[in-house]
Amino acid sequence: MNILIGNQKGGCGKSTIALLLANYLTLVKQQKVTLIDMDYQQSIAQKFEKGKVLENKPPYDVVAAQLAHYPVLQSAIMQTPTEAVIIDLPGKLDDDGLLPVFDSADLLICPFSYDEFSFDSTILFAIVLRKINPAIPIIFIPNRVKANVRYETMQEVNKQLSKLGVMAPLIPDRIDFQRVTTFMTPLPVIPVIIPVFDQIYTVIAEKLAAPPNG
């Protein structure tokens, strides 16, 4: 199963969400996972290499890759349909290399924040993906939400995004998220993220249980 973590707006927490999801799937659901880091900063791949030196056997593999590598990676992904492959996408839309990635995806998880530029970027990203892959489920995660966000703003943004996908519970802005690694989710973060990833896992479980062409 091919799970995209994407938004063309930088700073929305894509890489952290990808790490948290991989940790949740492996540690809570005992699901086999491979995480493909296609983000420009390659922060996940760097954490993974650092963690291998300091820790024991990693709970999942992390592959550093670029969009140009995807056609080769896709053939390997298709041979393991029961494995969850999480792809942390680069924050862009202007690359034809995204087309095969979008087309073969089974789920998009789209973190965003409640500001005007993030909202516009999120809407555009979701619309473009839907044009390429009309049937794909989209889950929007309000991420790094600050305490001073206006309730009316949240309601209006949620209303518009709900036309394109499903809204997950919000994740507040907390410094603990900076300590997430490929080996560990900090304890204070767990109660915050469980409602979000339990909802996401419902979609993942349905997809994994479906027939190959289902």
Score class of each variant (00 low, 15 high):
residue 94 D to F: 07
residue 95 D to Q: 12
residue 95 D to T: 11
residue 96 D to M: 08
residue 96 D to N: 13
residue 96 D to G: 09
residue 97 G to D: 09
residue 97 G to P: 06
residue 98 L to F: 08
residue 98 L to Y: 02
residue 99 L to K: 05
residue 100 P to C: 11
residue 101 V to F: 02
residue 102 F to C: 09
residue 102 F to V: 14
residue 102 F to M: 15
residue 102 F to I: 11
residue 102 F to G: 06
residue 103 D to I: 10
residue 104 S to A: 14
residue 104 S to M: 10
residue 104 S to T: 09
residue 105 A to M: 08
residue 106 D to Q: 14
residue 106 D to R: 14
residue 106 D to V: 12
residue 107 L to M: 09
residue 107 L to T: 07
residue 107 L to S: 04
residue 108 L to R: 04
residue 109 I to W: 01
residue 109 I to E: 03
residue 109 I to F: 06
residue 110 C to R: 01
residue 110 C to F: 07
residue 110 C to P: 03
residue 111 P to G: 13
residue 111 P to E: 15
residue 113 S to W: 00
residue 113 S to L: 05
residue 113 S to E: 12
residue 116 E to F: 14
residue 116 E to A: 09
residue 116 E to I: 08
residue 117 F to L: 11
residue 119 F to K: 07
residue 119 F to H: 15
residue 121 S to L: 01
residue 121 S to K: 00
residue 122 T to H: 01
residue 123 I to C: 02
residue 123 I to P: 00
residue 124 L to W: 15
residue 124 L to G: 08
residue 125 F to L: 09
residue 125 F to G: 00
residue 125 F to N: 01
residue 126 A to Y: 01
residue 126 A to L: 13
residue 126 A to W: 00
residue 126 A to I: 08
residue 126 A to E: 03
residue 127 I to V: 14
residue 127 I to C: 06
residue 128 V to K: 09
residue 129 L to T: 12
residue 130 R to E: 08
residue 130 R to L: 14
residue 131 K to L: 06
residue 131 K to C: 10
residue 132 I to C: 08
residue 132 I to F: 08
residue 132 I to K: 05
residue 132 I to T: 10
residue 133 N to K: 06
residue 133 N to D: 15
residue 134 P to H: 04
residue 135 A to W: 09
residue 135 A to N: 15
residue 136 I to Q: 08
residue 137 P to I: 07
residue 138 I to M: 10
residue 139 I to H: 03
residue 139 I to G: 02
residue 140 F to Q: 07
residue 140 F to H: 13
residue 141 I to R: 03
residue 143 N to D: 07
residue 144 R to K: 13
residue 145 V to R: 02
residue 145 V to M: 08
residue 145 V to F: 09
residue 145 V to H: 03
residue 146 K to M: 10
residue 147 A to Q: 12
residue 149 V to H: 02
residue 150 R to N: 11
residue 150 R to M: 11
residue 151 Y to W: 12
residue 151 Y to F: 12
residue 153 T to A: 01
residue 154 M to D: 04
residue 156 E to C: 04
residue 157 V to W: 01
residue 158 N to R: 02
residue 158 N to M: 01
residue 159 K to I: 03
residue 160 Q to N: 06
residue 160 Q to V: 04
residue 161 L to Q: 02
residue 161 L to W: 02
residue 162 S to T: 07
residue 162 S to R: 09
residue 164 L to E: 04
residue 165 G to L: 01
residue 166 V to F: 14
residue 167 M to S: 06
residue 167 M to R: 03
residue 167 M to T: 08
residue 169 P to A: 10
residue 170 L to R: 02
residue 171 I to H: 00
residue 172 P to R: 11
residue 172 P to F: 05
residue 174 R to A: 05
residue 174 R to Y: 03
residue 174 R to Q: 10
residue 175 I to W: 02
residue 175 I to A: 11
